[in-house]
Design a binder for these strands. Structure first.
Lengths: 226, 226
DNA sequence: CGTCTTCTTGAGCCACTTCAAGGTAAGTGG
DNA sequence: CCACTTACCTTGAAGTGGCTCAAGAAGACG
């Protein structure tokens, strides 16, 4: 139903079979919903930190990053979202971080008030809201665990995560820049680049192009990940 | 109601006025509940990682830490909980990390199934479950933001957080060891110790005893925290 | 083809870690 | 009450992983 509403363009990113967060149509399977699908250009802001959290979003095509900026300009990318992933769901009234399209993307948008209303009438919707938040919590906890690891471990973990979410037979097509990866892993772009090169040196991956990574040895990556 | 069920002993830790997570009696204000209060000794395990998450807990007196251990033994303390704080609430069937009493503590315990049942009958309980998870999510996001900062920033942030939660007029009585703090902040105990000493040198704090910290200049700490 | 952005690589540096020693405080048994 | 033990904390000195600064290579795009 969501699918049929989506205009196609040339982006052609794959839709992940495994959802990080229950898809909106799961959230809505017993409710009539009005989901608008909106296009966003490369680096376009979807919402900003502290803005009212009036909507909930699902990536239909493309990729989205959420991030916080410290007062001195350091940026932390909290998460990446791909087709099927839900983001921007808050309990409180305001967004805790900003969201931007990484690439040209299509995003389904539904009014939060509609969801909350549905949750009041339908128990399973209420449960899905809880579930979506719980999955985000698990992600955030995993992210903080990541940040105590070494650069090699962080990059290996990142690659394994991306492989699971974007995989086409061991080949990863990254939509995001090295800067995005670095800000997600709490490293510098130089360290990310060097670490990828060193993983290529030990034949764990190969790098036919900067954003095109082939996993050559997943168990080696898992071993590095600790 | 919970209060009256609590046997007193000699610990005499203060009960924080400000709750990190809605207290169980908030969660239960429209439900009859059977909350047992159990004592735990210093370093006693309350639950272990991957154990079935059959209960939800509230610190009544004392202090609790939750933590994960990596395969090579590195430990990350995810959070500290003080009187009034709820912990161990999971959406999934198993605990994502272990919980231990830091000190001799009293912990109120309720069956998860009771809560879930109540949530099915009572919309506000369902909302409180969601809310508690959302607050944990905010905490986890804050924690990962902390971990990209410098040692000085992390320690300053830790002190400000503890001051807010344990404060008795600018004096902090820490229940946890330097190792706990280090594992929470992603640093070594030596770095934590050195950083505290250096904060004392610049007159931001004073250290009459290792676990007794006096905030001398909060705005300096806030400035350091970035 | 030139320009701009992004990515890679190198060299030196610094914040934090590691390793090591000593100090302090609380508990325990004599 | 005091020696002894043990756990915890602090401080120093040296090492190192990741950062900073800098230059060049590789794509992307008009």
């Amino acid at each position: 139903m969501l699918e049929s509403a989506i205009p196609r363009d040339g982006l052609n990113l794959k839709v992940s079979a495994r959802h990080t967060v229950p898809a909106l149509h799961t959230l809505f399977n017993s409710v009539e919903l009005a989901a608008a699908v909106m296009p966003f250009g490369r680096n376009a802001e979807i919402y900003g930190e502290d803005e009212p959290a009036d909507n909930v979003y699902e990536v239909v095509r493309g990729a989205v990053r959420t991030y916080c900026v410290l007062c001195d300009g350091r940026r932390q990318v909290q998460a990446f979202y791909f087709p099927g992933d839900v983001f921007g769901l808050e309990f409180g009234p305001r967004h805790s971080c900003s969201a931007e399209a990484i690439d040209r993307s299509q995003v389904a948008i539904v009014k939060r008030s509609l969801l909350l209303g549905a949750a009041e009438r339908d128990l399973t919707v209420a449960q899905q809201l809880w579930r979506a938040t719980a999955i985000e919590l698990a992600r955030a906890q995993g992210h903080s665990l990541l940040l105590i690891k070494s650069a090699h471990e962080r990059v290996a973990a990142f690659l394994l995560d991306m492989a699971e979410r974007l995989d086409a037979d061991g080949v990863i097509d990254l939509p995001m820049s090295r800067q995005d990866i670095a800000d997600n892993l709490g490293l510098t772009i130089e360290t990310v680049s060097r670490t990828l090169s060193s993983l290529e040196d030990v034949a764990a991956i190969s790098l036919p192009a900067a954003r095109h990574i082939v996993l050559r040895n997943r168990s080696a990556l898992r071993r590095i990940n600790a």
